[in-house]
Design a protein around this nucleic acid. Structure first.
Lengths: 206, 206
DNA sequence: TGTACATCAGTGAACGCGCGTTCACTGATGTAC
DNA sequence: TGTACATCAGTGAACGCGCGTTCACTGATGTAC
């Protein structure tokens, strides 16, 4: 306990300015998240987000070069959340059915926060992202696949664990897309059905 | 051979008129298919299709109430093609690996004719179709699931064959979506990878 | 301590463009008498 | 056989609307001297 005084890092005015810019970016993304929670993804526009953030829509362009980048930033935040959740499950779930638990959580999360899922499909299908953004997108995808691969490796599959990870990831995405508008079922029934299929698939991948 | 004279069905002027309308509708859809073969789905518009059909874009609205209906009509034609292909495979493939063959063909077809796949995702994700159109969409989906279910039933799965059909259909859709923009791979490599994953999944579903 | 100037965040208004859809009109064909 | 009228397919022009993005400007704050 010789030294209890906190010595602050050296910080310049320029540093502060950058921090402030980042803080403002965060405020904007936070606002976007709130809007996404209320409106379907493809109806959300820059003006909505600006209004929610309490600024002019032109101001957004001071902090993001364009809409795609803002959306991607929001999406990556969601991906981080998923990764953290998977890690938490893996940590608390040393027993056998890790795969099923992860799949269930994945479906759970992406059903609750539907906008993340819609953004994912948007980037997969329509996205025309700048190469640098594609790179960031791929990084998180890779991080997710790494998690899944680790599970398969630990489970001693006869298949290539990486291929299994890819196939499982794709399969669950497919469930989320294919049955989201299951005719004549309410939200809860759709969710149950997705979980049911997720479980079936996870079982097949064991 | 008592009677070789063909007796034509009774046909009124009104019948003829309806037939002509249907023929014109077909010309328009044919034109749409050609445009879809050249342009990415989400860039195709009514004016393109009209130009390809050699008519004014306003004329299209004499034969289709709106764009969605025209697109759906084109899509259903693609679905019919898929169903016919599956039936052909089932007929020529009495041996064991029917499932893998069907999956391979499904991926093959929807990769070649990408616009059908894009339309499918469009209807699943963004589509706001009139109830009557949703009904038609569901009918073909059901027809496809019936085919898959029959394969599982014949294969004596321990699982519910209908559930297996749904899960497989979703899983393959997922592969087609998730890896269509696989970074840094050309068309051929993407295709091979999809087929590889399709095979892996089919194996898991055996 | 004050003055002139530079910087820069924030903004409302406007631009631009695409595109589905509708309108008002034309001209050909059919129908009644 | 001819005339007046109705029907209806086809059309170019225009409407309407959304919405990402940019522009020209304001006003506050910082800086040089």
């Amino acid at each position: 306990m010789a030294c209890t005084i906190e010595i602050p890092e050296k910080q310049t005015f320029a540093d502060l300015k950058i921090q402030e810019q980042n803080a403002k970016r965060k405020v904007i993304i936070d606002a976007a998240e709130r809007v996404f929670g209320v409106k379907p993804f493809h109806e959300v526009n820059i003006r909505d987000i600006a209004a929610e953030a309490g600024i002019s829509h032109a101001t957004i362009y001071r902090y993001f070069p364009n809409q795609q980048t803002l959306f991607l930033e929001a999406f990556l935040r969601g991906m981080d959340e998923i990764l953290a959740r998977i890690d938490a499950i893996a940590a608390n779930n040393p027993a056998g059915n890790l795969l099923e638990a992860v799949v269930a959580d994945f479906i759970d999360f992406l059903t609750q926060k539907d906008h993340y899922f819609r953004m994912m499909t948007h980037f997969m299908l329509d996205g025309e992202l700048a190469p640098e953004l594609v790179e960031r997108l791929n990084n998180t995808a890779r991080a997710l696949l790494n998690r899944l691969e680790a599970i398969f490796t630990a489970g001693n599959t006869t298949e290539n664990p990486r291929a299994m990870a890819r196939a499982l990831f794709a399969a669950i995405n497919g469930v989320l897309i294919t049955f989201r508008n299951y005719p004549g079922r309410d939200r809860q029934a759709v969710f149950d059905h997705m979980q049911f299929l997720g479980k079936l698939i996870a079982r097949r991948f064991n």
